[in-house]
Simulated scan of single mutants.
Amino acid sequence: MKDIFALLKQGSMASLTAAVVNFILAGLKGLAFLFTANVAMFAEMMHSFGDGVNQLFVFTGSSLSKKAPTKRFPFGFGRLVNLVCLFAIIIVAILSYETVKEGIHHIIEPLPAQTETTLLLVNIGVLAISMMLEGSVLYKAGKELLQQAGQPFDGLKPLTLSYKHIDSAKPATKLVFLEDTVATAGAFLAIIAILIGRFTGLLQAEGIASVLIGLMMFYIVYRVFMENAAGVLGESDPHMEQRISKIVLKNDEIKDIQKLIVLKEGDALHVEVIAEIAPDLTVAYTNELRDDIEALILKQSHVTDVNMEFEVDDGKRSWPVTQNQLDRKSQKK
């Protein structure tokens, strides 16, 4: 039991926070929908519930993925977070479909306009609370994302700079950030639709908002499914491969790289390198060289283990390098 709690402590706190907030908001929106029968509120309720379920699954998966490697699973359980996300996204897909279907129904057969000020205030109030809470979770997730990307995270950067570095984040953090971006935008969209319906008489506005919110949810379904399906199958990280190749080739004793693979295992990265060296290097020097390069690679974000081997230089160029890199090596010689 202690092991389970220890693993849960290592899970994504951004996912857990987002799950709790979304379940609370789903309850508030559900009560508001029962009270006002507002279709935009129904869409937001489904959205919050779907996000809450998804993020709870992600928290569980991110926790269990930290389990230490075993003899049967020597690479650990990193991909478990990807597998759990695939199950969770099925629920979100069903809720997205129901949201779009309900929105289309209310575009074709819109409900009469609600003229009671009380109902308007209930809808606007609940959605405003939702937008503020979702925005705070979005800010926290953006801050965590920038920390993982090694970028400054002060001021408004978590809400602006995060989108530029989103691919550098861990899967769980990336998912929370995307879902809360859509959730915050969806709450704002629902408020606008309610106001348009009330003050312009365009009764289809709420149905249109419901469809748009459902389509945004489908975008999350597509994005999460594609990324986690790739993670389950075993995906390489081309960006990190290029970064590590520069670290390896920076050493004058490394003549070429025969093979370099950076494999994603959930949040972790496993690195395998086969480099070419001159045949006259001693075993002792080669071992020291390996230790130095592996130590540099292990300092890179998310890298958990490195396997580096050496082969004698065959005189043929296997790994592409820039002319600047070749010139620098020539100047050093």
Rank of each mutant, 00 (worst) to 15 (best):
D3Y: 03
A6S: 15
G11I: 08
A14V: 06
L25F: 02
L28W: 07
K29W: 08
G30W: 07
L31E: 08
F35H: 13
A37N: 12
M41S: 02
M45P: 11
M46H: 15
F49G: 11
G50A: 10
N54H: 14
L56Q: 10
F57L: 10
S63M: 01
K66Y: 12
F75E: 11
V81L: 03
V81I: 05
V84I: 09
C85D: 06
C85V: 10
L86T: 03
L86Q: 08
A88T: 09
I90R: 00
V92S: 11
I94V: 14
L95S: 02
Y97V: 04
E102H: 08
H106Q: 08
L111C: 12
Q114D: 06
V122E: 00
G125W: 01
L127P: 00
L127F: 01
A128I: 01
A128R: 06
I129Y: 00
M132S: 08
M132E: 06
L133G: 03
G135F: 09
L138G: 02
Y139K: 07
Y139S: 08
K140L: 13
Q148G: 11
D154T: 07
P158T: 06
L161V: 12
D167K: 15
S168Y: 15
K170T: 15
P171W: 13
A172Y: 13
D180V: 04
A185Q: 01
I191F: 05
V211W: 04
M217N: 02
V221Y: 04
Y222I: 04
N228R: 06
N228V: 09
N228I: 06
A230R: 12
G231W: 10
V232H: 05
S236E: 12
D237L: 00
E241H: 01
Q242M: 10
I244H: 00
I247P: 04
E253Y: 04
D256R: 04
Q258A: 01
V262Y: 01
I274D: 02
A278P: 06
P279I: 05
P279Q: 05
D280S: 15
A284I: 14
Y285F: 14
T286D: 14
T286Y: 15
N287W: 11
I297V: 12
I297T: 02
I297N: 07
L298D: 06
S301H: 15
H302D: 13
M308I: 14
E311V: 12
E311C: 09
E311R: 13
V312N: 12
W319A: 08
V321Q: 15
T322E: 03
Q323V: 13
Q325W: 15
L326V: 13
D327N: 15
R328E: 12
K329S: 07
K332S: 08
